[in-house]
C-alpha cells in the first residue's frame, strides 16, 4: 500500500476522535472566556478577600500541571466525597478541568487589557452620565477585546495542542486514538498524521485571529 493511501486510512480512523477534540476546544473557549472575565473582575476587586482568593486560584491553576488538574477533577469526587465515578464523567471531567485551568490564563489577559485602558475613558464616560454597567460594556470592553486579541490567539493555539492532554483520562479524542493506532500498527505514521492534523487546526485558528484583528483595525 502506498504511503499516501496509508496515511489517509490512518486519518480516517483518527478522525473519529475529532468530534471530541473539537468539543473540548470549543467548550473550553466558551466557558473559560466567560469564567475568566468574572475571575479578572474578582482579581481587580477593591474588596481584598475576593481579590486575594482570585489571586490564589490563578496562582494554583497556573502553577500546577493541567494533566494533574484533570486527574484531580476526575478522581476528586470519589476520594474526597466518596461519590461513585461513572464512565460518562470522564469527558465532563476533562471539560471542567480545561475550563477551570484556561479561565486562570484568560483572567490575567483580561486584567492586562482592562488595566491598559486610560482612566480618562472612565472619566469621560462618567461626565457623560454613563452608569458603571454601560461604561464597562459599551466603552471599556470593546477596546479591551481589540487589545487582547494577540494574547488570546496565543492561548487559543496552545489550547488546540493541549486538547491532547485528555488522553490522561483516556477520552477518545484525536491523540488518544493516535496512540492506540501507534501501538496496534507498531508504526510512527499515526503520529505524523496527528501532527499534520494539529498543525492544520492551528493554521485555521491563526487565520481566524488574523481576520478578527483586521476586522477590528478600523480604529486605533
Amino acid at each position: 500500500m502506498d504511503m499516501l493511501t496509508q496515511m489517509w486510512d490512518i486519518f480516517l480512523q483518527i478522525s473519529r476522535g475529532m468530534g471530541i477534540t473539537l468539543e473540548i476546544f470549543f467548550s473550553t473557549l466558551f466557558f473559560s472566556l466567560i469564567l475568566g472575565l468574572g475571575l479578572a473582575l474578582c482579581r481587580m476587586s477593591k474588596f481584598k478577600p475576593v481579590s486575594i482568593l482570585a489571586k490564589i486560584y490563578i496562582s494554583i491553576m497556573r502553577g500546577t500541571p493541567l494533566m494533574l488538574q484533570l486527574l484531580v477533577v476526575y478522581f476528586g469526587p470519589y476520594f474526597i466525597f466518596g461519590i461513585r465515578i461513572t464512565q460518562s464523567y470522564k469527558l465532563q471531567a476533562v471539560l471542567i478541568g480545561f475550563a477551570l485551568n484556561y479561565a486562570a490564563y484568560f483572567a490575567e489577559i483580561y486584567r492586562a487589557g482592562i488595566e491598559s485602558i486610560s482612566v480618562g475613558q472612565y472619566e469621560a464616560a462618567k461626565l457623560l452620565g454613563y452608569n458603571k454597567f454601560q461604561t464597562f460594556f459599551c466603552i471599556i470592553m470593546p477596546q479591551v477585546i481589540k487589545r487582547i486579541i494577540p494574547p488570546v490567539a496565543n492561548e487559543t493555539i496552545t489550547l488546540v495542542k493541549d486538547t491532547s492532554l485528555a488522553f490522561t483520562l483516556s477520552v477518545a479524542e484525536v491523540f488518544t486514538l493516535t496512540k492506540q493506532l501507534v501501538s496496534a500498527m507498531s508504526s510512527m505514521t499515526p503520529f505524523i498524521v496527528a501532527g499534520i492534523f494539529y498543525y492544520i487546526f492551528n493554521l485555521i485558528v491563526a487565520l481566524f485571529f488574523d481576520w478578527l484583528e483586521k476586522k477590528m483595525s478600523y480604529y486605533r
Partner: peptide
C-alpha cells in the same frame, strides 16, 4: 446632567466614529 467637561487630552472614545461619540450619550443616557 447640569454640567459638561472638556478634557485636556480630549478622551474621545476611539472605537466610536465622530458622530457616535457625540450622539451615543444623548441617546443611551
Amino acid at each position: 446632567g447640569y454640567f459638561g467637561l472638556v478634557f485636556q487630552n480630549f478622551n474621545l472614545f476611539p472605537h466610536y466614529s465622530v458622530l457616535k461619540n457625540i450622539t451615543d450619550a444623548p441617546i443611551r443616557v
